[in-house]
């Protein structure tokens, strides 16, 4: 019986989230503007500098880099931290604790469901519309396959990180700043907003030791088909490190949950 439970959790979460499909589709409206803004910005920079390549990025790759954050997020983003801390603070975690299933399983199910919707409602239409504005000439079937291979462990990596931070609300009460710190790391250390090539060498050494690069930067590199992620050997190396991070964070999540759940004090009454 238990083996069919997980698909059911995903199915119900999917139905529930699908009510908000237009919230998802907003990405389709914003991303063309990201594209247009960066086209204007980099058109003027590439022309003014009279060059074809900056830091290893051609013009089209550079402009698409700034869309890649959305592309990666369509696959890896989750609301786990916000949801868990909200539940912990309002006392709604009570409801989840009354279910004979671990909270991790419930959250994972709802995250997977939300990503299925995001890929359908955000990723696919946005890619089509943006390709009409500036065609992603760098993309090949093989590079897209490489992207799909690294994006799945990236999802789990991001989920476990979020789950651990969500749990932190059990002791911190308000963990929104922790969440913001995480987003900040994703933005800077993960290369979500600024290509890591623009940072000095020492910063890149630090960034390589953190998991964020394996959630955002490497999937982006695979998507853009940019060296060194344009070769299978490099992709296998990335995959190996992603899996090690996943194992470490998963173990940490289990251990922490056992210790922290004793701190839960349901609000009200």
């Amino acid at each position: 019986m238990k083996d069919r439970l997980f698909p059911e959790i995903i199915r119900v979460a999917f139905k529930s989230l699908f009510q908000y499909r237009w919230t998802f589709a907003v990405t389709v409206l914003t991303q063309p503007f990201v594209l247009l803004l960066n086209m204007a910005l980099f058109q003027s920079i590439y022309t003014y500098n009279q060059t074809e390549v900056i830091k290893g990025y051609g013009y089209v790759q550079m402009v698409w880099y700034f869309l890649s954050f959305m592309i990666v997020n369509a696959f890896v983003w989750n609301a786990t931290t916000i949801e868990m801390s909200h539940k912990i603070l309002s006392g709604d975690l009570t409801g989840d604790l009354l279910k004979p299933v671990s909270v991790l399983t419930l959250e994972l199910g709802s995250s997977i469901a939300s990503r299925i919707i995001a890929v359908i409602m955000d990723f696919l239409p946005t890619i089509v519309i943006c390709s009409l504005i500036l065609f992603p000439s760098f993309l090949t079937p093989w590079s897209f396959l490489r992207f799909l291979i690294v994006i799945i462990p990236a999802f789990f990596l991001n989920f476990f990180t979020a789950y651990i931070m969500g749990m932190a609300a059990l002791i911190l009460k308000n963990n929104s700043s922790l969440y913001a710190v995480n987003n900040l790391f994703a933005a800077f250390a993960g290369g979500a907003f600024i290509p890591l090539e623009f940072f000095p060498g020492w910063a890149n050494t630090i960034v390589a030791a953190l998991p964020f690069k394996y959630i955002f930067y490497w999937p982006i590199m695979c998507f853009l088909n940019k060296a060194p992620a344009d070769e299978w050997t490099a992709v296998l190396g990335i995959l190996k490190i992603q899996l090690i991070w996943c194992a470490v964070l998963f173990a940490a999540a289990l251990v922490l949950w056992k210790r922290l759940v004793a701190h839960y004090c349901a609000a009200g009454g």
Partner: peptide, 15 residues
Amino acid sequence: WDLPAIDTFALHKKM
């Protein structure tokens, strides 16, 4: 909240 109760029941059946 957004779904009929019968959907929650079905989830509970599995759970």
